[in-house]
Write a protein that binds this DNA or RNA. Sequence first.
DNA 1: TTGAAAGCGGTACCAT
DNA 2: ATGGTACCGCTTTCAA
Lengths: 340, 340
Amino acid sequence: MSHRATLHDVAAQAGVSVASASRALIGGSASLEMISKVRRAAKQLGYVPDATARSLRMGGTRQVVFAVDDIGNLNYVAMLRAIEHEFTGAGIRLNVTATGRSERQTLDLVRSMNSGAGDGLIISPLRVTPALRRALLETVVPVVVIGSLHRDVAIDVVSVDSALAVELAVAHLVATGRRRIAFLNGPLDTHPGASRRRGYLAGLAAAGMTPDESVVEVADDFTIEAGRRSTALLIERRPSNTFDAIVAANDLLAVGAISTCLASGVGVPDEVAVTGIDDTEFAASYNPSITSVSIGSAERGKRAARLLLERFAEPTLAPRTSAVHPSLIARASTGVTRGA
Amino acid sequence: MSHRATLHDVAAQAGVSVASASRALIGGSASLEMISKVRRAAKQLGYVPDATARSLRMGGTRQVVFAVDDIGNLNYVAMLRAIEHEFTGAGIRLNVTATGRSERQTLDLVRSMNSGAGDGLIISPLRVTPALRRALLETVVPVVVIGSLHRDVAIDVVSVDSALAVELAVAHLVATGRRRIAFLNGPLDTHPGASRRRGYLAGLAAAGMTPDESVVEVADDFTIEAGRRSTALLIERRPSNTFDAIVAANDLLAVGAISTCLASGVGVPDEVAVTGIDDTEFAASYNPSITSVSIGSAERGKRAARLLLERFAEPTLAPRTSAVHPSLIARASTGVTRGA
DNA sequence: TTGAAAGCGGTACCAT
DNA sequence: ATGGTACCGCTTTCAA
């Protein structure tokens, strides 16, 4: 068997027309005899329908693309699992692609949707540049953004109040007696970076504290390594600029912060309390376990999938926004659940 | 613009034939005037070629599928990145799919390759069942397995001596003075589970130690949570069955082991040393940092991608096997690099 | 119920 | 260099 069997081969083998063969397999009108004849031939030849040809004819791959910046972030893994779960059963396959932090790659990916890469796109971009926004609008298939679009563009969005997440963290630290709260942020040109900074300032203001930029560091990425580097800078400036807490903009940064503190002999949570955001398994399992603000990653994934599914069914629906509420999970890194 | 522009539309707009339009865009023989005319029309209409149609005609999606069991394991993320890196530039898109631990899903995925899901498959299966082995053999597109196939089936494989990895861990523990070494394994019906058990026994034998099944636990998954549960059982049996080290079958299990030990008041590494396997970022950043045996995940991903690329170029190549060597990275969890 | 034939959107071979 | 056309594999009218 040097070549894959096509429907033609099956029809020939069964001694019927391709049309009949197609109907017999798909479930059109066909006699029982026809059905058994064709099925037998198909089995004999090991026939498998060609998805490409079917897509071309039917217009639509039964495939959805999920695009994330950093697949190494468990945050996205949680979304991925939830999305996959929604689609399984709907007979839709999920195509995960990491856009690798480069705008070029992201744009290519988004544009590829117009050439049939999938029937829909779920994307969670760190940076929403004008070019990306335009590309998303020009996409012919439905798009759902997990994150924010900055403007009222006509696209479905699942969002979370990222600033509020940080406010919750700050409030928790204040409530547990911390007085000088440092901030370990990610890049300011990302949406999370920008909004979390706002949340930090709002949180301080709510507590009647004045911000001090000397205890604010901006990591160049939302990763452990970047968190480590920036935390080292923070510590270097001590004790002249001291602090008794660090609010990290996500769990990976928090891990970087804690490991660096400990390696420098700074106790966590005794000397410095640390909080993260995302409530990943990483945070829950770290030592000490990390207080983190859940921004409902699994829930957002689930909602994104449903929005997409609903739009498939009803393409003329007005664009919708679905918001998830953040909630803080207190753990050992802020000293609240010590001994747990 | 209610409908996507097709090549027909472009040709009409430019006042030329579809054949000429195709050539002008693809790069066949065409006059400069033709090229500019067609390109202008294409831009005007926002024409984007349909990948599905092209695939059908050309035979081959420029897409490769990478299938892993647990996308939440950073081990696979390392492979993914390496693979992606190799394919980028070759103009091949990588389609990542998590097979979610269920054999059904895995089989469906593998079989879908025969219906044009991609031009090739890289798969790293935890369990190689007879059904999976058969499905892999029946696949019409090239397959590369990262792991092991148990038999000399005619498929490219990138492997690592998983048993040796555990032996290295045991030897390291022995060399650093540990005398009763517990083993936290993953499911025995997986390839890693089975071979790592062999490595554990071999390692003990090499050190002149006799195995004691009361310090061996088999977690029901290679995850943190499973590791936690099994470690709790291990600890429960102390001090009657004591141990001063735990060899975990991967980093996630190691994290589960350490966090459970610490939560139970068992010091790491003072009372119990712990080692992992995979050398993920998780291991490097944990507190204490975890001694882990690298099994070259990135390297294996890279090699798998290259094997596939080479087979694309030379389909008649004899099946090859490429082996990576494990190496131990000593960290704080075994007390060697304390204070680092 | 069945078969013949027209596409789906491209590409490539064939003449011109 | 250009246009006409067959064809990739499948689904779906349309007649018979």
